[in-house]
Design a protein around this nucleic acid. Structure first.
Length: 580
RNA sequence: GCACCCGUAGCUCAGCCGGAUAGAGCGCUGCCCUCCGAAGGCAGAGGCCGGAGGUUCGAAUCCUCCCGGGUGCGCCA
């Protein structure tokens, strides 16, 4: 159930009725009429802007619309009061029974509370992480992984048909570098002294890969020319790296539906097919690209290249897809990859990139727009940098050249749950501080702890009531008499619970999973306030030994809070804790 | 030079498909508690929402310009 949607429906229906009765003129558009929670609860439970929005098209004063609308709304049993206020707002106060009804609804739905069909089964592809297969995942990937995975969970919860995808950049020169680096480790495993020159990866993580290569190939490649081993070693190495990456992702709780190989696009006609599609739309041409606008274009010499006319689809300039030697630029396989996504029938695409790829967004959108004739949307979410700290000071783990703080290091130290939550305590395009001391802190300064603690506290109260003989089964609690819930603070808590479905809609609309983390933090906060009241005044405790009816109502209420906390944490991929 | 992101309380940030007196945490000030419903509680001060125009009944939110910070900018992916 979504109370805001229900009341919005009621308002719209009332407007139609007023129109039929001639109070309002015909032909009005009600789509901009909203029903929202007012900023200040003193104004009521919900407010609608109907009178103000319709005043102009109806050629009426806001007041003359608001008054009959208020009268009409008051005939609905859910509406307690309807007052015209300010410039024409209509403030509604709902009966406490309406609010109380949120509780059994939540209990009945359980962790599915808030699940919706707003996605209408639309097929959506989310590409995230997509790190080069040349080493372990690091901090930045961790944030992107959590973001993408949580967004995927969120959209699935909202009724989209979601595919989680990882694009393996195994087609470029960097995997040759990987192969050469592994080859050095291989020689090392054979007892040779090797030197890691510039352009190779000296990280320790390749030592076991070199040893594994030795076990597999023996000394077959020792002393052999590169041409003899490069292909084999490259394949072996990228395979090993992807195994490592998959393991790391799993430790974070991230599982992809599909790992898509860039290499698979080469020599299979796929790149050619994508470019042919663009060609047919007249979007491929030969030309000299504009010189780079960087400060130092001295070495620029104009050369004729094959260009994608991305400027026809919103890009600033046309982009080269072939290098001057005729081979593909990195943009070409990316076009082909997105073309493949379109061909696979997705209605919408989301790419999660690091912020350093910001300059790449327009051309990618242009490609998708062109290839789908504007039918498939592409939303690119850029993930800002993560600053690792410990007690507020920059944190560096002991590391050798070439190895950064890895995702595995983070998960090992902070745990997957805390890592996931913390990575969402900032909007994706804002830089984020990840402080190990804070993430592990057992106090209210730590939002992860704060939310988990609220859930554990509820479990503790429910457990206690149960031990004292109260039937705390959710099915039973659904039927208890909620008239006992009349305290303003209790209604406020329920109101917060009732916002959950609406919050989800907003998060989906903006593709912003961090909103869930913030909401859960707020909800936990409101719960703690109520819980703390019971410390000073026993009559305000949820469990009242002398009053089973009141206890049931209150336990039902806090169970509803627990349900939302669980549902929210589930979307974040986090297990709620029953005790701390 | 151009593009994108950001500029909100002393600090770190929410809010931004336009809505009423702009929120939270930290820090600060005051009071209370130290009772396993534990790993503190309550209250308060603190803002021309970077600046200037514009659209609108209404702008932190949308548009334009400017200022400040970050990122990116041909044959690296």
């Amino acid at each position: 159930m979504n109370l805001f949607a229900d009341i919005h429906t009621l308002v719209t229906r009332s407007l139609w009725e007023l129109q039929e009765e001639g109070v309002l003129p015909d032909g009005l558009d009600f789509t901009s009429v909203t029903v929202e929670p007012p900023r200040d609860t003193l104004h009521g439970d919900m407010a609608t802007n109907a009178a103000m929005v319709l005043a102009k098209p109806a050629k009426m004063k806001p007041h003359d619309i608001a008054v009959p609308l208020a009268a009409r709304l008051l005939t609905d049993e859910r509406v307690d009061t309807a007052d015209v206020a300010g410039p024409g707002f209509l403030n509604l106060r709902l009966t406490t029974a309406v609010w109380a009804a949120v509780v059994p609804a939540a209990l009945q739905a359980g962790v599915d509370f808030g699940r919706s069909r707003m996605g209408h089964g639309k097929r959506i592809n989310i590409e995230y992480v997509s790190a080069n297969p040349t080493g372990p995942l690091h901090v930045g990937h961790t944030r992107g992984a959590v973001f993408g995975d949580t967004l995927a969970n969120l959209l699935a919860f909202a009724g989209f048909d979601v595919t989680r995808e990882y694009y393996i950049n195994d087609g470029g020169a960097q995997v040759d570098v990987l192969a050469r680096s592994v080859y050095l480790r291989y020689l090392e495993a054979h007892g040779q002294d090797v030197a890691f020159e510039d352009g190779t990866y000296p990280g320790d993580y390749l030592i076991p890969v070199g040893q594994a290569l030795k076990e597999k190939a023996g000394d077959a490649y020792v002393g052999a020319p590169e041409a003899d081993w490069l292909t084999d070693v490259r394949e072996f190495s990228t395979g090993a790296m992807m195994d490592l990456i998959r393991e790391d992702l799993k430790a974070l709780g991230v599982e992809m539906d599909l790992f898509y190989s860039e290499k698979s696009l080469y020599n299979t006609g796929q790149i050619e097919a994508a470019l042919e599609a663009l060609e047919q739309k007249g979007l491929i041409c030969e030309g000299v690209p504009e010189p780079p606008k960087s400060r130092t274009p001295e070495y620029w010499e104009p050369r004729k290249q094959t260009l994608f006319r991305s400027s026809e689809h919103g890009d600033d300039v046309d982009r080269p897809i072939r290098k001057s030697d005729g081979s593909w630029t990195y943009f070409a396989p990316d076009i082909a990859y997105h073309y493949d996504k379109i061909e696979r029938g997705f209605d919408a695409l989301i790419d999660v990139f690091g912020t350093d790829h910001g300059g790449y967004v327009k051309r990618m959108k242009a490609a998708v727009s062109a290839l789908s004739d504007g039918q498939v949307s592409l939303d690119v979410k850029l993930i800002q940098l993560v600053r690792l700290l410990k007690n507020g000071k920059p944190f560096k783990m002991s590391k050798r050249a070439g190895i950064f703080v890895t995702m595995r290091d983070i998960v090992d130290q902070a745990g997957a749950d805390a890592t996931r939550f913390h990575m969402l305590t900032r909007k994706n395009d804002a830089p984020l501080d990840f402080d190990f001391a804070l993430v592990l802190d057992q106090s209210k300064e730590n939002p992860v702890f704060y939310v988990q603690y609220a859930h554990a506290r509820i479990c503790s109260v429910v457990r206690k009531a149960s031990e004292a003989g109260l039937d705390v089964n959710d099915r039973n609690l659904q039927n208890c008499d909620l008239a006992h819930l009349s305290d303003m603070a209790e209604i406020a808590l329920i109101r917060k619970v009732a916002e959950w479905p609406r919050l989800l809609e907003l998060a989906v609309h903006h593709n912003e999973p961090h909103r869930i983390a913030f909401y859960l933090y707020d909800l936990a906060g409101e719960y703690h306030v109520l819980h703390n009241r019971g410390k000073s005044r026993e009559t305000l405790r949820f469990w009242q030994p002398e009053d089973a009816a009141a206890s049931s109502a209150r336990i039902a209420m806090i169970r509803a809070v627990a349900v939302v906390l669980s549902a929210g944490l589930a979307i974040l991929g986090i297990n709620p804790m029953e005790e701390m």
